[in-house]
Write a protein that binds this DNA or RNA. Structure first.
Lengths: 198, 198
DNA sequence: CCTACCGATCGGTAGG
DNA sequence: CCTACCGATCGGTAGG
């Protein structure tokens, strides 16, 4: 809670620049494949200066992962679940998630999916507990859907299959191709639900 | 093609030991998070000795990825597609793939899924061309299935969704849990096909 | 496959 | 946030 004035005023933006630049490098080269000099160069700093903003390289990954995860959660939790049918809600959830993942305006999404694994100790635990909230949201949505349309048992496994299909898109989706991320979300939901919607 | 006698006779096993030990380290710490000294220690060598067997650390990753991918392909291509219905074939394919991925007797599977991305140049190209054969096999199987049971259009996307669900299991499957890999394969196929099988 | 070693680079720090 | 730097470690090599 105790932060220097400098950090609160001027530091905030610079911190974010560092995190976002690092995120893209981590995505392309992996966490351990990226050096602090790579990051510093990308934000036009000298490598030692990074450590004025962050205590360690690990903390940069941690900050990026937490920010990316929090922003994704915020988007998903803003969807008015109580005003929608289970099917509509699930469709909007999927669209929103895919847009977040594939448009990835901040570059942070790949940290949340993959790179966070390189964290250890307390930094990793913090990520895991936020991930639990994320998974709980999806599981609740999937179970609600399953009861509404009569999907099979094994809802826990099925939800994870679905999330695998969803997050796996980042390995093959091509931006500017024939579908926008949101349109791909519709294809995904239809793939799952087509036989139940007739 | 020209190999020293030493490599052909005694070297083969030692080479495999190195590759398999390295694979588990790459899986746990990532390619760049693993040092040649880590690998050497795991096989009770001195770090310099690795370079008697491989020209570089990259070549160890390459060898592991190619071996893992080739062995997976061999298992999948050994399934007698002509003697089975599209549905049965697809089910056996899924079971076999999940057993390969989740039992992972060699430790090479994670290289094929993730770590190969850290390769560059010709080594990466070689992996990609073998991966193309792998993807073509799955796409053919999925299309055959789709025609047989009347799955929706977008077969390319759908197949990739399915592969995402399948390969994504490695992020959450717990060995020795309530399902064997093959049983999980059945759950996965039922998840996809249940409404069409009634 | 070991011994002995190299130049380069790593994450990070001290002092301003 | 820069300057100047550190000790440790990196992937890899020469010579046997």
């Amino acid at each position: 809670m105790v932060r220097s004035k400098k950090l609160q005023i001027g530091g905030g933006n610079r911190r974010q620049e560092i995190v976002h630049a690092a995120a893209r490098l981590f995505r392309d080269r992996g966490f351990h494949g990226t050096t602090v000099r790579d990051i510093a160069l990308a934000v036009h700093m000298h490598s030692g200066s990074l450590f004025y903003h962050f205590p360690s390289k690990n903390d940069i990954l941690h900050a990026g992962t937490m920010e990316g995860l929090a922003s994704c959660l915020a988007e998903l939790e803003a969807i008015p679940v109580d005003e929608m049918t289970p099917i509509d809600y699930f469709r909007v959830l999927t669209r929103t998630q895919l847009d977040h993942l594939l448009s990835d305006r901040t570059g942070l999404a790949p940290l949340v999916v993959d790179e966070w694994r390189h964290l250890t100790g307390a930094l990793r635990d913090e990520v895991m507990s936020l991930r639990n909230r994320y998974e709980a949201l999806w599981l609740a949505a999937y179970e609600r859907l399953a009861h509404a349309v009569g999907l099979s048992r094994h809802e826990k496994f099925s939800c994870w299959f679905f999330l695998g299909a969803l997050l796996g898109t980042k390995n093959w989706y091509v931006r500017g191709g024939e579908k926008t991320p949101q349109e791909l979300g519709d294809v995904l939901v239809d793939w799952l639900l087509a036989p139940y919607l007739k």
